[in-house]
Amino acid sequence: MLQEKSFKETVKLNDAYAEVFCFANNTEAREYHVTVHVTNTELNFKQQLETLINAYNEIRINITGNAVAVFKRYFLSDSANQENEVYNMETSDCAISVIQQPPIDGSKIALWTYMITGIKTRVLQNGLYRVEHNTYTHLWLGNYNKLEFNSEYQTRILLQNYVMKLIETGCTLADNCVRTWFFINDIDNNYNGVVKARNEIFMTQGLTPKTHYISSTGIGGRQSNHKILVQMDAYSINGLKQGQMKYVYAPEYMNRTSEYGVSFERGTYIDYGDRRHIYISGTASIDNKGNILHIGNIQQQTLRMLENVGALLDEADMGFTDIGVMIVYLRDIADFRTVKKIFNHKFENIPCIIVHASVCRPGWLIEMECIGVKDLANKQFKTF
């Protein structure tokens, strides 16, 4: 694997393959997004897990520069019978997320991991995974949940506790949180509770339609314990200066989320001295009035979704060529072949995982999120 410049490639491995994205710009901090997929679906879960971990280790060893995993997310087909096996075999000390969102390629498990070279890491006592480089401290959180009466109270406690964790590190939710993910068990019944709690907590933290919100995905997913209705993953950064974090809206394509009662940003980008990061929230087939477009038509919904994501990227002067990883959520597994054909035609070698997960509105058949990075010369800010 070349390390001097950025690349995307697909690597065939034993009973698996990996999609690898590398961002390199002649600095010590190279970034990798890697997705690992099992191809031999006749293996049992333990065998698939071993295959996946072996494939990941092979990729990691072949990446020079001592790249360190800072975040991993495992996608499982049956968390009740698989989650403990993952924890028993997982030895990384990075932030880890494990969620039941079955890969639709027929396998029982898939993996997305984010790795960086030239960093210092440690786990804080409050559970945040700390990544230090230059003047920035990156804080990752995975698999965070609390058992409470319903989804509203679970979300409320999660966010209140997360606010306190950030305060302990000198951060606030409004100034430092970049990205959240909410995985909601039985989303059709529990999403409203998440929305209510998030709206109320955000207001107490100075997050309003007149200020800004946080890029986020709220999507169906569950843990092994069926009483856990909400799991949260999150990412914050300490050390950002005013004007370093900005938001994209694509108003000709989509309306503001606050217009239909929810509180998240369509996308967030951060400028460093040497690169730009972008985080696109869960995005679906929607217009600038908040209407679902192409109801019942998976092909047209997929194309409109991609058009919306493209408009958000364009607003940040970026494009799909800058994308390091895409996660795609399908409500109906029968739509997989149609969606896969479109993605294969439009994208080559971009790390991508397509999973079975219900979207927050029943009329949406598909949703996607992505993360990207672009080379940038900006002397106003410190390098990444």
Rank of each mutant, 00 (worst) to 15 (best):
K108V: 09
T155W: 00
N54W: 03
N54A: 06
L293D: 04
G239Y: 06
V194G: 08
N189P: 00
N134Q: 15
R179W: 13
E348Y: 15
F381R: 07
R331A: 06
R122W: 12
N62F: 00
R60M: 04
Q47I: 00
Q223D: 10
P209K: 09
H212V: 01
T211L: 04
E168H: 10
R60Y: 06
E315T: 05
Q299M: 07
T113F: 07
H37E: 01
I214S: 01
E315C: 05
H37K: 07
H37N: 06
P362K: 05
A250V: 07
Q223Y: 10
T113I: 08
I371A: 14
I99G: 02
M254H: 07
Q160K: 05
H138R: 11
T155Y: 00
A197D: 04
A55L: 01
Q48D: 07
R266P: 04
F347Y: 15
S79D: 03
T302K: 00
E19F: 01
N297I: 00
V262Y: 08
E42N: 11
F384Q: 09
Y56F: 10
P103N: 08
K210A: 13
G243T: 14
E148W: 07
A284W: 00
F23T: 03
I237Y: 08
M203E: 13
D322S: 02
M89L: 15
Q223T: 13
K246E: 12
G220Q: 03
F183M: 07
